[in-house]
Design a protein around this nucleic acid. Structure first.
Length: 387
RNA sequence: GCUGAGAUGGUGGAGUGGUCAAUCACAACAGACUGUAAAUCUGUCGCUCGAAAGGGCUACGUAGGUUCGAAUCCUGCUCUCAGCA
């Protein structure tokens, strides 16, 4: 298991590092972005699109795939990756986040009951009563068969009272311990061994560190940062991640749901993040908001994002980006893209999703190269990121 | 030409005497989007003054009329659509 992660080069000025995560399905060069394919599909893209946009791994979701199509289908397919035709490395989330946060986004009265045993909730698909425990999550994730899986936790939400937060911390530690035990048992009978990451909660550096020390009494393969918002506030991110990473020198660190765009990514990597997922990269793409480089008009003010559905791009014959080499930028104009977006042509989703994933992946490649050549600072300046 | 129906804001389409600057949808514009129930969600959407509360003005084809009061009732005109010739 110790061969899971190898650090190749450390940045001289920060916790950033270049490394390799070796999985049964290939190597992930880190730092890396892992696109989210919730239901065994990165919306709009097929596996060839993913490879062409330099994606190294795909993250799918326990909660969604458990509810539909269900374990029987997943079992027969041999996991979600073969099911979707993806042969590279994979990650699954544990379902903890969905169970806690996504049960009632529309105000309907779906109920989630969380006890020390686990979470019971109503399926958003057919109203069935479903329950997920730490053990169950491990069993499901074994069937989904990702290379890297997450322990089952109860995320700490901003709206919780301090008492609720405390309960969630304690419960998560317990749940993760149980996740670890179940995982260890399951792995004995698996051919392709899965790596298990502990999910670390925490509102500030202190609580995160305490949590980490506690949860790592079990020898998890890696660590995922969850709960607290990461990325969107650069200074908070720096403190949070930079602080904890000194305990994680040899473990791969994943950021669950890393926000904040280009600067959020830079801050997190500076803090020692090795991999991260994010849904807004692909979600924003679908609404026409695309990442652009400084050469294309990206700057600190627009956060390196431009909404190409705006009518001012109607007659624009230039490409989205002169730097990017994705199919959208190589073959089509901004005006054509706007046309596709405004008229809701399905092609728009594919092209914009390819672009945003390509952008983030190539940002990752630049970061890896810059760390290797001691030029990470220059890269940060290029993106107007305060060093 | 006759008969019938109708003309409402960028568009479709509610409203049939006061609570209508006018339901709603779409478009447009602005904003949000962290482990994806998100090709979603939120706001604005006649003009104008105001930070806001709120005020002023102009509006429901057009010209008149009835009424304390009309998008809503009456008459003329213009136009559109359907049926008959």
């Amino acid at each position: 298991m110790s061969s899971l992660f190898k650090i190749i080069k450390k940045d001289k000025d920060s916790f950033a590092r270049v490394g390799e995560i070796s999985t049964p399905h290939g190597v992930i060069q880190t730092p890396a972005f892992t696109p989210v394919g919730t239901r065994a599909s990165v919306r709009g893209l097929d596996p060839v699109d993913l490879i062409k946009s330099s994606s190294q791994a795909v993250l799918a979701n326990t909660y969604h795939l458990y509810l539909s199509p269900g374990l029987e289908v997943m079992e027969k397919a041999g996991g979600f990756a073969p099911f979707m035709g993806w042969s590279g490395p994979t990650i699954t989330d544990s379902g903890g986040y969905q169970v806690s946060f996504l049960w009632d986004p529309k105000g309907t009265s779906r109920k989630v009951k969380i006890t020390d045993e686990g979470a019971t909730f109503t399926s958003h698909i057919d109203g069935d009563k479903v329950s997920i425990t730490p053990e169950k999550s491990m069993q499901i994730q074994s069937v989904l068969s990702a290379d890297i899986i997450m322990s089952f936790d109860q995320p700490v939400g901003d709206s919780m009272t301090s008492k609720q937060k405390n309960t969630a911390y304690q419960r998560s530690i317990e749940w993760e311990k149980r996740s670890f035990v179940e995982w260890a048992k399951i792995q004995e009978n698996r051919i392709n061994k899965q790596a298990l990451y502990a999910v670390v909660q925490g509102e500030d550096m202190q609580s995160r560190r305490q949590f980490l020390e506690k949860v790592m009494e079990n020898n998890f393969s890696g660590v995922a940062l969850g709960g607290q918002v990461i990325g969107s506030d650069v200074s908070v991110t720096r403190q949070n991640i930079g602080f904890t990473s000194d305990l994680l020198i040899q473990k791969p660190v994943h950021a669950l749901g890393l926000g904040g765009g280009v600067h959020g990514v830079l801050a997190a990597i500076e803090g020692g993040i090795d991999t991260f997922d994010n849904t807004s990269v692909t979600r924003m793409a679908r609404t026409g908001i695309l990442f652009v480089y400084p050469e294309d008009g990206g700057n600190n003010t627009n956060k390196f994002k431009i909404d190409f559905s705006k009518s001012k791009y109607k007659f624009d014959t230039s490409p989205v980006s002169v730097v990017c080499d994705c199919i959208l930028c190589k073959r089509f104009t901004r005006g054509y893209l706007r046309h596709l977006l405004v008229n809701q042509e399905p092609l728009a989703i594919r092209l914009t999703t390819i672009h945003n994933i390509t952008f983030i992946n190539s940002l990752m490649e630049r970061i890896r190269n810059s760390i290797q050549t001691d030029q990470f600072s220059q890269l940060k300046r290029y993106f107007e990121f305060e060093v």
